[in-house]
Every structure is written in C-alpha cells, then in structure tokens.
Simulated scan of single mutants.
Amino acid sequence: MAGFGDITGKAQQFLKDEKVQQALHGKQAEEVSDKLLDAAAKAADKASGGKHTDAIRNARDKADRAVGDK
C-alpha cells in the first residue's frame, strides 16, 4: 500500500504534466469550473445563512483563477 507522501508526490507530478496543465487552463475547463464553483459557493452561502458571503465569494474567485483560462 502506498503511503500518503508517495500519493502526494504522484499527484504533484501528475499536475506538472504539460497536457494536464493545458486541460486545467482551457476554455472547457473554465466553463465547467465556473458552474461547479458557483454551485459550491451558493451551497456554502446558504449553509452559512449568508453570514460569510464575502469570504465565500473571495474563496470562489481564488479557486477560479487557479483553473480555466481566466
């Protein structure tokens, strides 16, 4: 059984692959990630009763910059 460090190393190596980077930063990834991030932010905002709307929006925007072409 692989250890956590081994799995983490493999995941990091996978994310460095050029084809993976292209997929993460393409137009299709942007469209899909926007929908997922919007849904997650809406659910989090609802769960918090709107008490953390700004923090949730900031986290959503930060995640959005990491994926897609924007």
Rank of each mutant, 00 (worst) to 15 (best):
F4H: 04
G50V: 02
Q21T: 14
M1E: 08
G68I: 06
Q28N: 11
K35G: 05
K10E: 05
H25C: 02
G5H: 06
A55W: 00
E18H: 09
E30P: 03
G3I: 04
D45Y: 08
H52F: 10
Q22L: 09
G3Q: 07
H25M: 05
A29W: 12
S33W: 04
K19Q: 15
S48D: 09
D61C: 03
Q12E: 10
K46L: 04
A40C: 03
G26V: 02
Q12C: 10
A63V: 13
E30Y: 02
H25V: 02
D69Y: 07
L36P: 02
A63D: 00
L15D: 03
D54W: 01
A23I: 13
D34M: 07
A2I: 06
L15E: 03
Q13P: 00
G49T: 07
G50A: 06
G26S: 15
D17G: 08
K62Q: 14
L37Q: 08
K62N: 11
R57C: 00
G68Q: 01
K70F: 06
V32M: 01
T8W: 13
K46P: 02
A40S: 05
K46T: 06
D54I: 05
A63W: 08
K19R: 10
A55I: 02
G3D: 08
F4T: 05
S48N: 10
G26Q: 01
G68P: 09
H52M: 09
K70Q: 05
K27H: 11
G5M: 09
V20T: 10
R60Q: 15
A39V: 00
E31Y: 03
A40E: 08
K19I: 00
D34K: 14
A43N: 04
K42E: 15
I56F: 00
A11G: 03
G5C: 03
D38H: 09
E18P: 11
A66L: 15
D54G: 00
S33N: 13
G3R: 06
Q13N: 09
A59R: 06
G26M: 01
K35L: 11
